[in-house]
């Protein structure tokens, strides 16, 4: 009897917990999706993710050559036509979606983690730690990033999305780090952090429980922006012919079409498909970033 009541009350508590969790999630989602830009941007990104996951299962890509069917115009069978080796461009683009998204995602994770952690540490601790981190940040901001991407891509053999992402994020965290530092420095002056300091709370507590949640929305927006930059950089690196580990990556398709296009202009049209995909994806990330910005920083909406 006693046990059953405990279980019953435990179940009730759990039910309440999940109901509350559901409510707050629902509230968060409603707030999140109250913005048209967010909805549109988010839906397009979800669409690309679905294509990346299920696309290759429905439309598997066959890399074998079929010279008889080279340079076919778009048709029902080959919606985007075929390339100089008679391979289906539509299936190539679908196969490349995952590759592009992977690099973007990993780079964004690395960039945001490095930039946020160093920015918070630098802004919160101040003193010589701040000076050292800022000096390092200045180097990364001063040396033009693109040549370095190329140099690193040439030095290190890139054969996985993760290695490409590492190279991109090594040279792209600095801007975020500096911006987070400024935010932290202004937060530090605010009363609630001052109170924590007076109450002798541990630095770890202040950083993770007080400062991090307050820059979270800013970091979330920058995650999306980091994805944008990673796509720009990764496609650019492939466009020069480096990091050619995946010939179906949009950047690799564009590069191949471009170089072949010098011989036969027909190839040029092939690169339009991945190019349009990149543009649509980049617009959707911009919409998502702007939408999040409007929802999370409402003061901007007033202006």
């Amino acid at each position: 009897m006693n046990r059953t009541t405990t279980i019953r009350s435990g179940a009730a508590a759990a039910g309440r917990f999940f109901r509350e969790l559901g409510c707050s999630l629902a509230r968060g989602c409603r707030k999140f999706f109250s913005n048209t830009k967010t909805i549109v941007g988010f839906s397009i990104i979800v669409f690309f993710i679905l294509v990346a996951v299920f696309g290759p299962l429905i439309f598997p890509y066959d890399p074998s050559t079929d010279m008889a069917n080279a340079y076919l115009m778009p048709s029902w069978e080959h919606p985007f036509g075929t390339d100089w080796l008679g391979r289906d461009v539509f299936r190539q683009v679908i196969a490349g979606t995952g590759s592009v998204l992977e690099v973007a995602f990993y780079s964004a994770v690395f960039t945001v983690v490095i930039g946020t952690v160093l920015g918070i540490v630098s802004g919160y601790l101040g003193g010589w730690v701040d000076k050292v981190i800022m000096a390092v940040t200045n180097i990364f901001l001063s040396i033009p990033s693109f040549p370095i991407y190329l140099l690193l891509a040439a030095i290190v053999t890139i054969n996985t999305p993760v290695s490409l992402a590492v190279i991109i994020s090594i040279w792209s965290w600095a801007g975020l780090c500096r911006a987070v530092r400024v935010q932290i420095m202004s937060l530090k002056e605010r009363d609630f952090i001052q109170i924590c300091t007076v109450m002798h709370m541990s630095k770890a507590h202040i950083i993770f429980k007080e400062l991090l949640p307050n820059v979270f929305s800013y970091v979330a927006i920058n995650f999306v922006m980091a994805m944008r930059n990673a796509i720009m950089a990764s496609v650019g690196i492939m466009l020069v012919g480096l990091a050619a580990y995946d010939p179906t990556n949009w950047g690799a398709i564009i590069n191949a079409a471009r170089t072949k296009g010098l011989m036969n202009v027909k190839n040029i049209y092939i690169l339009l498909y991945p190019l349009v995909c990149i543009i649509i994806f980049q617009i959707s990330t911009l919409l998502l970033a702007n939408g999040l910005d409007e929802t999370l920083n409402p003061r901007l909406k007033v202006m």
Partner: peptide
């Protein structure tokens, strides 16, 4: 702003080359 900010500058360059130089 939305479109020009979303298209990497080198892709704009590529499009211009295709249209005005190759084509």
């Amino acid at each position: 702003i939305a479109v020009s900010g979303s298209v990497p500058d080198y892709l704009v360059a590529l499009l211009l080359v295709i249209v005005f130089a190759y084509q």
